[in-house]
Amino acid sequence: MATWTWFHRFGSPPFVYRIAGRCAPWFGAGAVLCIAYGLFGGLVLAPPDYQQKDAFRIVYVHAPAAWLSLSCYTTMAVAAFVGLVWRIKVAHAVASALAPVGASFAFVCLATGSLWGRPMWGTWWEWDARLTSQLILLFLYLGYMALRSAHDDLQRADRASAVLAVVGVVNVPIIHYSVYWWNSLHQGATVMKADKPSMPAEMLVPLLVMFLGFTLFQLWVLCTRLRAEILERERNARWLREEIQEGA
């Protein structure tokens, strides 16, 4: 029983509001440090790639953005599912706060991929399987946000968009593999060689640090957005008034 009581508190808006406020600066500081080191290591310390020269360095932004756009969607769907099944308001707030973050990462991933494609493939856009499935992921995010904004009633918006997020997350692997299947039929997978030489440590370490930094950055943004979301949802609650008066 005792083990469950601490868990239950994550369903209460005041508790989450305070925890998010307390964690946000730590995540923020960690993100700034990691990204600063990762950028320095990736852009200055790492040697240029023997094939792609300096163009490969965009990977330090591109790959973490791609990873976060996917993980945001999964987290969003899990939060939506939790909110749908156990009717936890905070879970819906998490899903709602995450959607624009994930959509931005998907967009950054597409934009950097396109920038990299210009010198490497000689074109801004290639119907590559990875780019295409990333584009569809962006569409999924846009659909989710559109559905949310189309409802006036907050509770209904929460629950309807939660159903969509769950349907979407079941579909993501199907879409992903069908796009790969389609792509392998239409053009050989020549774009990225499968037998890539493994990265030397001075290239890999900054990349891993960037992954960590982007994840911390996402948590930082999530905490901040979640607080804003709770502020808006609980604007008539007494605890919030007391909390704000205390802080002032």
């Binding site: 659909g143 349907v167 879409i175 069908s178």
Partner: peptide, 16 residues
Amino acid sequence: LLSLLVLPLAMPILIF
């Protein structure tokens, strides 16, 4: 809104 929700999910149908 409906097309925005349904079309991305319908891509595999189109492909196959």
